[in-house]
Nucleic acid binder design. Structure first.
Lengths: 219, 219
DNA sequence: CTAAGATTCGAACGAACGTTCGAACTGAAA
DNA sequence: TTTCAGTTCGAACGTTCGTTCGAATCTTAG
């Protein structure tokens, strides 16, 4: 690994940390310059723009997650095992690279043009892989079609990606236990056996309500 | 409702839409001026700063969600029903005010100082209410302590709040059905009856791996 | 050593930012 | 009509932004 690559990686790591702390758009190149002890102009020897920094972080991130996932899924047939691997892979990467993964989740729309398209395509591939696993899982059961596949897929990603809002990898809860809990929650639910029957019909508003956030105007 | 209040609300609505589209920090007061047809200086007759705009959006948002939730929860005892109401309330507000709720979820850390504290306190109250409901639900069952309460709470919020990344209120899937699916998924799981047993032990990496996003360096 | 490329940076660029200020306009009360 | 508070805005402020450029410094092959 060349000196150039090492320093670029150091810059990307640092940029990811700051992007995660104060968001991409309110981080200045001067912030990154200060944190890396590389002069403002010097940064542009390692990237052609601030946006490329964000792109490189996101692209590296996705590349590694996908790469490792495909390795781990090789030869596995059982859908339940597949899902377990998927969740474990996603969360352990997340926990080991909180800044980068937060940037990946939170700054999805901060890229524009080709860079955005490139990352979105990868993201789509990743999402579809998850959806496929859930589809296989559903097929392998008797009770089919209970829960919409799209809803389930995004619910899974929501559960997993939301952790950047609360999870502390240094805290008491280990990543592996977190993955176990979320897998169990997703597969078996929070209170298996309970039917949410009365919820779905009795508690609905009986008439049209004003659901607007703002007082006194129609929603 | 005075003319002043009406115009302020119009500005807040518009600002929320733009904040949701291109994020708070990359939206300029000039963008809001252009979209509202209020001059740049004119905006400052209705707010004292750009940050106050964000605060007013978030605070109004939370106020209404909490207010309506407390109304609907009044007198309800059954934890399952409570949870159903909570999810339905959250999601229907989300769907009816996608921009504002996206801003609330996505720009949580964009406020600073007292404004941040104020919104955070409200958010905390809301989170604790959800946690309390889940606690009661867990108490009312035999199988206790299966899933960590903190994990479950944040998983629920992750599932719900993530919808700003994919859900289209104008699309085929109705909010009520979305709420039903998510409630069912959370309570009963995606495939109730399946034990994720083999996942938790067999598929773990047998040795320490490099989990870093970056190639060639230690994680 | 010398030469040549790779790396670094101080200084500056034009553009865009949030905010302010005083003047102009408006509408209703007197 | 006069008055005055409420509302609007053009113009400008000081600051910070991403980026560039030419020169200086460092590294290494010959």
């Amino acid at each position: 690994m060349s000196r150039y690559d090492q320093k670029l990686e150091f810059i990307l790591r640092t940029a990811a940390r700051i992007f995660a702390e104060k968001s991409y758009h309110s981080t200045s190149m001067r912030d990154i310059s200060r944190a890396t002890n590389v002069s403002l102009a010097g940064l542009y020897h390692y990237c052609k723009s601030k946006e490329e920094l964000l792109f490189l972080i996101q692209d590296n991130c996705f590349g590694r997650v996908l790469e490792r996932l495909e390795e781990r899924l090789e030869g596995v047939e059982d859908p339940v095992t597949k899902l377990g691997i998927f969740i474990e892979n996603h969360l352990s990467f997340f926990a080991a690279n909180m800044s980068e993964m937060k940037v990946l989740s939170h700054e999805a729309e901060s890229l524009r043009g080709d860079l955005y398209t490139h990352v979105s395509t990868r993201k789509d591939k990743y999402t579809k892989l998850a959806r496929k696993i859930l589809g296989e899982l559903q097929e392998s059961q008797q009770n089919k079609q209970i829960i919409d596949l799209t809803v389930a897929t995004y619910a899974l990603f929501g559960m997993m990606n939301w952790i950047y809002n609360w999870y502390d990898p240094q805290g008491k809860l280990r990543v592996h236990d977190l993955a176990r809990h979320l897998t169990q929650l997703f597969l078996g639910g929070f209170s298996p056996g309970l039917l949410p029957g009365p919820v779905s019909t009795n508690t609905l508003p009986k008439q049209r309500e004003n659901l607007s956030i703002w007082r006194g105007t129609a929603g």
